[in-house]
Amino acid sequence: MEETFGQVPGYMQLLAEPASDHSWGIFRDLLLGETELSPREKALMGVSAAAAIQCPYCTYFHKEEARFADVSEDELEEAVTLASTTRYFSTLLHGNEYEHDAFDAETDEIFEHLREQQEAAADD
């Protein structure tokens, strides 16, 4: 960790054994390692998740991570807005106890329609 970060952050020292090595491995491999997602995509996801769970620590970290990955301020604002939209509609659906099967069926219909429109536009 010190080799990667130039230090062992105090918050990482809060991890109890044996979780410390395991937690660092997850952090290192998923956030910093080569995965299917680019560093920009991972940073934007981190910002979105941090904003949705309203964690100031995670928000600060992931915004800095995103800036390091050359994410613009406009892209950061959009990521947070998308996260807030997801949280908004999740609250609406959960609070009204909307039927999950109906939601799935409607969503499938919507995306089938969008695919058909996309295919028709490509054919033109």
Results as ranks from 00 to 15, higher is better:
1 M>W: 10
1 M>H: 13
3 E>Y: 04
3 E>C: 05
3 E>I: 14
4 T>E: 14
4 T>C: 06
4 T>Q: 11
5 F>Q: 08
7 Q>I: 14
8 V>F: 11
9 P>K: 05
9 P>N: 08
9 P>G: 09
10 G>D: 15
12 M>V: 12
12 M>T: 09
12 M>W: 15
13 Q>V: 09
15 L>K: 07
16 A>Y: 01
18 P>R: 06
21 D>K: 13
21 D>L: 09
22 H>P: 00
22 H>Q: 11
23 S>D: 00
23 S>T: 09
24 W>Q: 04
26 I>D: 00
26 I>P: 00
27 F>W: 12
28 R>A: 09
28 R>F: 04
28 R>T: 05
29 D>C: 03
30 L>F: 11
31 L>R: 11
31 L>I: 10
31 L>A: 05
31 L>M: 05
32 L>T: 02
32 L>E: 04
32 L>K: 04
34 E>D: 08
35 T>H: 01
38 S>D: 00
38 S>W: 00
39 P>E: 00
39 P>W: 01
39 P>N: 01
41 E>G: 01
43 A>M: 03
43 A>F: 00
44 L>A: 02
44 L>M: 06
45 M>V: 05
46 G>W: 02
46 G>R: 07
46 G>F: 06
46 G>Y: 03
47 V>H: 00
49 A>H: 01
50 A>D: 03
51 A>L: 07
52 A>R: 10
52 A>D: 12
52 A>T: 13
52 A>G: 09
54 Q>F: 04
55 C>E: 08
56 P>T: 13
57 Y>W: 11
57 Y>N: 09
58 C>W: 05
58 C>L: 07
59 T>G: 03
62 H>Y: 09
62 H>D: 02
63 K>S: 08
63 K>W: 00
64 E>S: 11
64 E>W: 00
65 E>R: 12
66 A>F: 04
67 R>G: 06
68 F>C: 05
68 F>I: 02
69 A>S: 08
69 A>E: 02
73 E>M: 05
74 D>A: 08
75 E>V: 04
76 L>P: 08
77 E>D: 13
78 E>G: 02
78 E>R: 10
81 T>I: 04
82 L>Y: 09
82 L>S: 06
83 A>K: 05
83 A>P: 11
84 S>Q: 14
84 S>V: 08
86 T>R: 09
86 T>K: 10
86 T>A: 15
87 R>D: 14
88 Y>F: 15
88 Y>I: 13
89 F>K: 13
89 F>S: 12
90 S>C: 10
90 S>I: 05
90 S>L: 08
91 T>R: 10
92 L>P: 06
93 L>N: 14
94 H>G: 15
94 H>W: 12
95 G>L: 11
97 E>W: 08
98 Y>K: 10
99 E>H: 13
100 H>D: 06
100 H>V: 13
101 D>Y: 07
101 D>Q: 15
102 A>F: 09
103 F>N: 05
107 T>E: 08
108 D>P: 03
108 D>N: 12
109 E>R: 11
109 E>I: 08
109 E>M: 14
110 I>S: 06
110 I>M: 14
112 E>L: 14
112 E>G: 13
113 H>Q: 14
113 H>V: 11
114 L>N: 06
115 R>M: 08
115 R>S: 06
115 R>G: 06
116 E>R: 14
117 Q>V: 09
118 Q>N: 13
119 E>Q: 04
121 A>R: 12
121 A>L: 09
121 A>C: 01
121 A>W: 05
121 A>H: 02
123 D>Y: 00
124 D>W: 04
